[in-house]
Amino acid sequence: MVSECSSLPKCTEEGAGPTVVSSGLPSLDRLLRYRGVRLGTLMEWLESDDESVASASGATTLALAVAVHLQTTNELAGCRPVVLVDRGRSFYPPSVMPWLEQSTHATSVKDSSSVRGRHSRGNVTTGREEHSLYIVYPANEADELWSIDQLLRCSGVAAVVGWPKNVSSTGMRRWQMAAKSSGTVGLLVRPSHARREPTWAEARIQVEPSPALQSRCQHVASCKTCNAGVQQPVSGRWIHSRAFTLMKVGGQWDTVAAVPEPSVACVLDLTSGKEHVGFHGTMEPPKCQGTIRCAS
């Protein structure tokens, strides 16, 4: 009870509403208590139950999509970098660099419009070369836990993405307090067996790849030529999107409020890191729309 009270949103402490931003995935927002990600909290992403496809299930892809979106969404703080703590040294940046370039471009356009061409935020005021992604390579588990802790304490970081395997409840609590003090969001991708462990994360999301939904996504893509009267599958287009089933399997708020939808479907556009609009909020086969539209 004490822990729950200490982590109540700021609306009860300061009289103002908690700072909540969209995760960039409308389907995921529906799963979360505040219909978005509350700044200064942790979020756990559990990989697939099937351990043979755990590393290929897409949990990291979703976590990175949310991190990139958070980088540009928090208007109070400007463009802050995303930092990855990669002890396994296996993350491959070319897969997500286009997302970062798009978000950086969007931020620069927004900034220039908001200041009416006088000065742009970033290089002029900070004097620092702006980079949107940093990677930290800790040598051992102790360094990994320390690095995540230090990053979560820094208000100059938009989001921290890590793959910690073993975290004690005390360590997780420390991270939660660190994130709360700085407003940084921690996105932790963890193996599925971590579901049995206690958590201080605000939400714990189980990610399962959904081949059935993926095939329907391909259907929509293949009907792009409906108007011409020719229906031929567009070869290889399926690699540009990926379908998931997201389930909320735990989190700090389970005892406080019931979650209306325990699971949702989500189709992610891997080119932009955003969700396909035509799919969120329903498990029914979507109607043919002639093309895939992305959430703006």
């Binding site: 700072t19 700044l39 928090n74 109070l76 703080a77 400007g78 802050r80 970098p81 940046p93 070319p94 660099m97 005021t125 900070t126 004097g127 620092r128 980079h131 992604l133 940093y134 990677i135 930290v136 390579y137 800790p138 040598a139 360094d143 320390w146 690095s147 230090q150 990053l151 820094c154 208000s155 100059g156 970081v157 407003g183």
Partner: peptide, 30 residues
């Protein structure tokens, strides 16, 4: 309360490099 100071991130980078080594904190470049 939620405004970020860029120098804090530089301080953080220095701390990370001091403990983990110069090659452990990197920027990916294509």
């Amino acid at each position: 309360p939620t405004q970020s100071d860029p120098s804090r991130f530089e301080v953080l980078l220095n701390r990370l490099v001091s403990r983990l080594g110069s090659g452990a904190v990197v920027e990916p470049r294509l």
